[in-house]
Design a binder for these strands. Sequence first.
DNA 1: TTAATAATTTAGGATAGACGAAAATTCAAT
DNA 2: ATTGAATTTTCGTCTATCCTAAATTATTAA
Lengths: 245, 245
Amino acid sequence: MAARTRRRSGEPERTRRDRDASPPLPELTAPVEDYLKAIYELERAGEPAATTDLAVELRLAPASVTGMVRRLAEQGLLMHERYRGVRLTAKGRRSALRTLRRHRVIEAYLVQALGYGWDEVHPEAERLEHAATDDLVDRMAMAIGEPTVDPHGAPIPSRAGAVEEARYRSLADLPVGAIADMMRVADEDPMLLRYLADLSLTPGCTVRVVERAPYGGPITIEMKRQRRLIGPALAERVLVRPHRE
Amino acid sequence: MAARTRRRSGEPERTRRDRDASPPLPELTAPVEDYLKAIYELERAGEPAATTDLAVELRLAPASVTGMVRRLAEQGLLMHERYRGVRLTAKGRRSALRTLRRHRVIEAYLVQALGYGWDEVHPEAERLEHAATDDLVDRMAMAIGEPTVDPHGAPIPSRAGAVEEARYRSLADLPVGAIADMMRVADEDPMLLRYLADLSLTPGCTVRVVERAPYGGPITIEMKRQRRLIGPALAERVLVRPHRE
DNA sequence: TTAATAATTTAGGATAGACGAAAATTCAAT
DNA sequence: ATTGAATTTTCGTCTATCCTAAATTATTAA
Ligand SMILES: [Mn+2]
Ligand SMILES: [Mn+2]
Ligand SMILES: [Mn+2]
Ligand SMILES: [Mn+2]
């Protein structure tokens, strides 16, 4: 599909408000917003985002990513060092955070106001994030009490674009006996999310590591007096905050 | 802007459900959905929709409309007789009605659930209608009690695509002494809508024509004991249902 | 009937975004 | 230093959508 919200012929039609609130932030296309968001997430690991990683993340051919990256660099949204990867500029980061806020507020709203399951909201938010105005997103946030995290525990950037990305540890890394609060999990795998919900292993709950089988064996955890066996691949994906240290 | 949700390389990935519910209805782009919607509205006047009228409605150059119309005809969404205009096929009409349902449910939801004014919702709905799934729209409709009309009095098509388009009369055509219920008004002019709201002339209210100045002069109406003078251009746009006949 | 006018289509371009094949670059292991 | 694999970019194409200018067709007026 290729139709979108092409900038119409009629002039931009600037109103008073446009000049006020911080920087104008020109309208970006849905693909551009998704690129910036993906780059932001990849960059969180510290390194510049690599072409191939972006291609995998966005499910595009590497050649397509190179082409888009060139355009985004021209627009001053990111810096590209050939063969080295890309880093967002301040402008690009602002856009990424705005999209991230939209995405996460929408996910939270769908769950809290419209009864969606936490495993169903991601694809919906992936499209709505490009169509919803900031005003709508703010109204949604207000309607559900200004949440600070989305249904998967990801922090929701403020209107101004501030986030505190807490660095959690993986449940897979905890030693036996450790007690921790479940904080966050990736939002993209519905099956995983449904399974976690079955286990009642959702953000906010407290778990204790009871036993760890060696050599990548299962981990036994206890939650609310219930013991559960989970595989290391799953534990890997679950982020927690250990009690004290 | 040109990026959208292009059909990805990966196969369509049909699931069981796909084959069930009536016809598959392939994904259409936002511009295509807007064309079909506009054609549907123009066709309601009885005649095939003319290229120029579509161009005006969609704010595009007539040549662009001709080009798109050719493509839509190839896809079996409409019939085009060169120099004569276009008519939707059954398939095209189904798509138009689905978009119309989305648009109107979204408008109603924004007003009733998120506190939007009836003059603010149209542009928002114009974009969200292409991003929201049928499921989301159904949930919205349910959340606000399955409304049958949008905030401007336009009927909301059913999930199955049924609408009863009542034929109302214009307030400008009523004789002195006539009493009528305000039923509907076009949703696109925010200024007009704000003015009508100021007058308390909104769908559901009852008005009586008290006096009509000749030669396109103002019309005096009475609502809830209040008399108001309104111009003929405005009266023209207000659709009403006269009491008895 | 014809000539002028209005509506519509055709022709030729542009832009955004995506793809595959082939070439170029980097990097790690000899 | 070479080399081969992995990564990344370049190049040539494609589709969808829109635009302007020119040509064509239909309609209306004389
Ligand atoms: Mn998500
Ligand atoms: Mn997205
Ligand atoms: Mn509307
Ligand atoms: Mn629309």
